[in-house]
Amino acid sequence: MAVVADAGVLYGLLAVGAGLATGLAGIGAGVGEQGIGAAVVGVVAEEPGFLGKGLFLMLLPETLIIFGLAVSLILMFAWTPFAAIVTP
């Protein structure tokens, strides 16, 4: 098993991981919101007063992206073993 010792390569892998974390989480949230959004539009067409509650429901899955983002931020900035490798 080869050990990757080059800091540049490690940093690149970190960046890829961070990108995947946010990107995949975004896809997940999008899939979640799709169904809710369609349903909310249907309800609001019938009853405009539901808009606020509909928005509330629609925005719920957004938290997923933020989880992904939090992981990315930790990978890029906050995880000290990696940060130590990266910062010269």
């Binding site: 957004e62 938290t63 933020i66 989880f67 983002l69 939090a70 931020l73």
Partner: peptide, 12 residues
């Protein structure tokens, strides 16, 4: 916990 993490969007 996720409530708090959710505020990261202010930065993001």
């Amino acid at each position: 916990v996720s409530n708090l993490i959710s505020y990261l969007r202010l930065l993001a």
